[in-house]
Design a protein around this nucleic acid. Structure first.
Lengths: 237, 237
DNA sequence: TGTACATCAGTGAACGCGCGTTCACTGATGTAC
DNA sequence: TGTACATCAGTGAACGCGCGTTCACTGATGTAC
């Protein structure tokens, strides 16, 4: 058995620390993270952590980055699975929507970490987290774009036209005065659909909607279907 | 000038403490609440707080209760204003939807406190907070019910029928085997619409959707209109 | 109106605790010759 | 293969800090007679 390379051992220990941190979050919430408790739970001393992370804040940044990437990975896996089975972009989008909730429920503290209340007195370095944060949105947007291109998707009013103010905003954001209509539309429809999914999940994980509907998973799935149909997707997907 | 009654003075000081606590939350987030810092900011000593609240947890509970009630009050005021102007239930509902966001933005930390990540190691006494939490949902539900009753609102498919599983759940929740159809429908439609509004706000206050749409207020208003029309309300409202 | 007493609305010192971070150090492992 | 040295992956003690909470106390205010 070949000996492990030094960098790999370091990477392994970093992972061990991050895993312990995730369990620590699960126990006390992301705002309750304690470097000393993390160290204790893996039989290290607190200063040892500093060999792997420059500070607690840097550790938190690593957690956030991992969470954004893990969520995007999960969405991409769901998308690729469906597409490689010969599924349409619409079918892949449906799966991605379901996976968004599944991942959130199964990794609740990670989800809270990235989409919940920010940690007090911690400032995320946005130049690091923003690209990772954008990945998930891209999965939605690109599938909608794919569906538009392939001709299986014809948006219904009022979702067939990007409101002028938002179109202007997108042109500025992409820094492209002649931004492609279908790119703008897929961005806009992401902005329309995503919050609908997000809202259910947010209310669910903090216990506000369960009492109203009982089986949230079934309710969520139905809302995804309703949303996609409202936008203009036609079943089956 | 009549002298203030002792209980009034106590109530005033409680309010002063709670106000300071709200400012403390605005600074460090709800998870960063510090009894000592609250006391300092109003030139009291920390132990003095104990004359008004039995513990930090009890103070937090008071904040939560106030926040739920203040939000519900705001929604009710918006509703009553519209109705007293001769507006329809649909118009009042529209105003209430807009007020939901306005209140959230203007009282962001209060909104986070009740709908964001729970405070580490704090457990809300649900028998106290639940009734207050339910008030806001009731405003939505009752207006929808009113619109149904008045005949100005005829839900469109698929929103004209409560899914059987949810109907069963509601009958159990209300402990009423023969629960009125329109009551069930108004509960169901609240569960459909509320998360759509909620999702936008959650993403907005934590900075996730602004980059996509620019003017979130305008985007939100448009989504409220789309949602109400999708459910079956007819303009103008 | 004056005095005695009770209650009120706090203060100030102290408690034990856990925290993030620094620092000087050390034994184990890896490398060079 | 053996030895000398460098680096690695930590340890243990200590730092200063802010926290929630308790306790014994005190001066100001209100009440009774």
């Amino acid at each position: 058995m070949p000996r492990k390379r030094r960098e790999d051992v370091i990477e392994l220990t970093r992972e061990k620390i991050l895993d312990a941190a995730r369990q620590n979050m699960a126990k006390h919430g992301s705002a309750g993270l304690s470097l000393r408790e993390i160290a204790r739970s893996i039989d290290m001393t607190a200063p040892a952590i500093y060999y792997y992370f420059a500070s607690l804040d840097e550790l938190i940044t690593a957690l956030i980055l991992d969470a954004f990437n893990a969520m995007a990975d999960a969405l991409e896996v769901a998308r690729d699975k469906k597409l490689s089975e010969g599924g349409t972009a619409a079918q892949a989008l449906f799966e991605v929507c379901l996976t968004y909730r599944t991942w959130a429920i199964e990794h609740q503290t990670d989800f809270e970490l990235i989409y919940g209340t920010p940690i007090p007195d911690y400032d995320a370095p946005s130049e690091i987290t923003t690209p990772a944060a954008a990945r998930s949105g891209d999965v939605f947007g690109k599938l909608i774009y794919m569906a538009l291109q392939s001709g299986i998707f014809h948006p219904l009013p009022p979702y067939d036209v990007v409101p002028p103010a938002i179109a202007d905003h997108l042109r500025e954001l992409y820094n492209a005065p002649a931004l492609d209509t279908e790119i703008m539309l897929s961005n806009y429809l992401t902005a329309v659909g995503w919050p609908q999914l997000h809202g259910i999940i947010m209310l669910e994980i903090f216990g506000h909607i369960g009492p109203f509907v009982g089986d949230v998973a079934a309710f969520y799935q139905q809302q995804v279907i309703n949303m996609m149909k409202a936008i203009g997707f036609t079943e089956p997907f």
